[in-house]
Computed example of a mutant assay.
Amino acid sequence: MEADVLNRTNLRRHTIVAGVFFIAVLSVQKVWADVPDYPDRSVNVVIPYPAGGSGDTTVRFIGRKLSERWGKPVIVENKAGASGIIGTQAVGKASPDGYTALFTTTLHIQNEAVGKKAPYNPITDFVPVGQVLRSPAVLVVSSAVSANSFGQYVDFVKSQQSKPSFGSAGNATTSHLYGELFTRKTGLTAVHVPYKGGAPMMTDLLGGHINYAVIDVGSVMPMLKAGKVKVFAITGAERSSLLPNIPTFKELGFTGFESYGWMGFLLPKNTPTSVTEKWEVALSAITKSPEYTELINGLGMEPTTIQAAQFSSVLKSDIANWRRIAEEARITAE
């Protein structure tokens, strides 16, 4: 009898303790999900590439605007190395509380598409919160070339006795992928010449050391305005407001060139929805401002306001497209 009473007493105690623990867990989860005061301290934004360049300019501008909106410091940190993998991994391992964000580029998914090994999954280990710009690429040649249209240029290259060459900003980059795709789609046989960035490649293009390239508009625009180069086609699903008179590859009968280069923000997976929503609202306001539009257009890119759901779709469709291009062009990270 006494044993039964003791067992029932212990059972009630365990039930009460379990109930209190369950309520406590729910309370913690609710607070974690709501995060009403976010941000209540400084926010760190990692860009996994070296300082300088259009990406650096863009993220520092947005960082200043976020600081103004939130009333807290937004610190931009360049953590370069291994084609962006080192900085990206650091963000992936960070606490999913919204205080460490990643500002990255198309390379985030291209690494996966070309078989570059990384200690994270670019899709499932991150939460996209906003794509803030896109960057089409153009087929560019020296103005010394006599051809004045896409068709004329392809015929001109095919008529040359020497084997043509095309440049890129590096192996397995967007310019390499699109350059190789153009070469194969037009039936050309060309030598790929990789450079350490777009600037030295453009210098050699002007000097006649390479024949053509398919590279981002930002790298080409100053020389195009100066009359030093010609542009015959542009990537993307539609003509660009930056160069409205230039036809897309698709218009010219060549598919596969629809994906854009882009830049955007991601957070570690499991970041509370209330935090990602605050990022979405802030980024939307910043990217729609005339000041931001002027900055991005000046860098030779197109401002975008693509929020989480749509950005997630872009990531998934782009990784499939870049993988297909890499396979078709037989490009790997090695």
Rank of each mutant, 00 (worst) to 15 (best):
Y153V: 12
A199V: 01
G167Y: 05
V35F: 09
L102F: 09
F126Q: 05
K269Y: 07
I286S: 12
G130D: 01
D97K: 00
W70C: 02
R134S: 06
S149R: 06
V229I: 10
G253D: 01
A320Y: 09
A147K: 05
E334K: 15
P73S: 10
L252Y: 12
L188A: 07
I296H: 14
P222D: 03
P164T: 10
T332H: 14
G81K: 11
V191I: 08
T248E: 03
Q131R: 11
A309G: 12
A144P: 01
G253A: 06
P164L: 09
L243H: 04
P50C: 10
I319D: 09
A24Y: 04
G170W: 01
L242F: 05
D97Q: 01
A18H: 06
Q161W: 06
V191R: 14
G236T: 04
K158L: 09
F182C: 11
S219L: 06
A80Q: 14
P96F: 00
S42I: 03
V220N: 12
S162F: 09
A333K: 04
S162M: 04
S135M: 11
G55F: 04
T248V: 14
L102T: 08
S284L: 03
F156K: 09
P39H: 07
S240R: 10
E328G: 01
W262T: 11
T9C: 11
P290F: 10
D37R: 12
H176R: 08
Q161H: 01
S142R: 03
P136Y: 07
E258W: 06
A226M: 11
V91Q: 00
S313P: 03
G170M: 07
S95I: 13
V140D: 03
W32N: 03
Q131F: 06
F166L: 08
L242W: 02
G52M: 08
E327V: 00
A329Q: 07
K316C: 02
T186I: 12
V5C: 09
K158G: 08
K117G: 05
P39L: 08
P290W: 02
M221S: 01
T9D: 12
G170V: 12
R60F: 01
N321G: 07
W70P: 07
T273C: 02
A308D: 00
A33H: 02
T183P: 01
V281P: 00
F22W: 07
Y120Q: 13
V76L: 10
L243N: 01
Y260R: 02
K269R: 14
I47Y: 12
Y49D: 12
L205R: 00
V76H: 02
A237I: 05
P268Y: 02
A113W: 10
E277C: 01
L267V: 14
G218C: 00
Y292P: 14
N10M: 13
I286Y: 10
T293C: 09
N211D: 15
A172K: 03
G115P: 14
E180H: 15
E327A: 15
P272K: 13
I215A: 01
D97N: 06
L299D: 01
T124D: 15
A237T: 11
T273M: 10
D204P: 04
G207N: 13
